[in-house]
């Protein structure tokens, strides 16, 4: 098992190196000038402009800039934002929990609803329910999520007034930041000081609902379809038939024998969806004013904030790699044939 993990880890090295090169190269190819953006319509004295570029280290030859960049990365230094002059790592760590919270909640929604729908559809194959689930999941899969987000706000927040419009919590609550996950922080605050923070946790949850649905719709559709087909596959297997023949209760057959094996391909899908989720976060965060890294990166691209874009994208890429790595390992644990394959 250990050598398996080591082997997988070793494979990551060239990928990570490639990603630093790619992000660095991509960003330098974007035309535009961060200093101009900061100044706007106003005139910029050429000498001042040159001085600013020099201060930011943008007047060096490209390979030197890359070496500087790689060198500081090795020291764990992600540089400073050109616009806010705050360390990129600090900005990342304040904004990432918001994205993480949204992603987890969206994934939870996707997995719970997707699995349930998939399992029931597989058991009642050919029924009206099955057709309904499959039709809906295909619709969800085809949904432009930015449009879905707008529709959700229009319906639930504006027309019906059931959910808050945007943000992470009612700002009347001044929640102290502990974990950065608003639901957890709000719960802690409410727990420690019930008088001042009554209802904070519920409010934080309410803010999470619509963005999670918008972001989770596509993964949910994929998971529902995947679960259904892999359940159908497993239900045909001999051991399931044997289990049934032994007279085990249908519930036991489904949950103990079938679902466990059907989950393996579903797990891969969950891993693959992390990348999609991060992409979707860009749109969802834009629509719901969610202070996460998707919006941060879009803003940074528009302002030509080089360190933020390249390191932000690097962080996201590392995250995707990490999740897929974990899925790989889990997969290896679940399936010995993969573990031992050279």
């Amino acid at each position: 098992m250990f050598s398996f993990i080591l082997r997988r880890l070793w494979l990551l090295v060239p990928s990570i190196l490639g990603i630093t090169l790619l992000t660095f190269g991509l960003i330098r190819m974007i035309p535009g000038d961060p200093v101009e953006v900061m100044v706007g319509e106003r005139t910029l004295d050429p000498a001042l402009h040159a001085a600013a570029l020099h201060r930011l280290g943008l007047d060096k030859p490209l390979y030197l800039q890359y070496l500087d960049y790689a060198g500081s990365l090795l020291h764990g230094n992600l540089g400073q934002s050109l616009v806010t002059r705050v360390n990129v790592w600090d900005e990342f760590t304040t904004l990432f929990p918001a994205t993480l919270e949204l992603a987890i909640s969206a994934m939870l929604f996707a997995v719970v609803v997707g699995l349930l729908a998939g399992v029931v559809a597989a058991i009642k194959r050919g029924s009206l329910f099955d057709h309904g689930v499959m039709g809906l999941s295909l619709t969800g899969f085809s949904m432009p999520i930015f449009w879905l987000g707008l529709l959700l706000i229009m319906l639930f927040s504006v027309r019906l007034g059931w959910t808050p419009v945007s943000g992470r919590i009612d700002l009347a609550f001044d929640i102290p930041v502990r974990t950065g996950l608003m639901t957890v922080d709000a719960w802690l605050a409410e727990h420690n000081d019930p008088a001042n923070f009554a209802g904070a946790f519920k409010d934080a949850l309410a803010h999470l609902i619509l963005p999670s649905i918008a972001l989770g719709t596509i993964p949910m559709a994929v998971i529902a379809r995947m679960t259904r087909s892999s359940m159908l596959e497993v239900l045909r297997e001999d051991y399931v038939r044997t289990a049934r023949a032994k007279g085990l209760s249908p519930a036991r057959v489904i949950f103990i024998h079938t679902l466990r094996n059907a989950l393996i391909p579903v797990l891969t899908v969950v891993g693959l969806q992390v990348g999609t989720l991060m992409g979707g976060a860009v749109l969802t965060e834009t629509i719901f004013s969610w202070p996460g890294i998707g919006k941060w990166l879009i803003d940074a691209i528009q302002r030509r904030d080089y360190p933020v874009v390249q390191n932000g994208i690097l962080m996201v890429a590392l995250l995707v790699i990490l999740v897929n790595f974990i899925v790989d390992i889990l997969y290896g644990i679940a399936n010995p044939r993969i573990r031992h394959a050279k």
Partner: peptide, 21 residues
Amino acid sequence: LIFAITTDPSVRFQKLKAGEC
């Protein structure tokens, strides 16, 4: 005094209507 940072103008309008700012 609290600045609730809301980049989207239509969301700002919704929040104002909902009494969130």
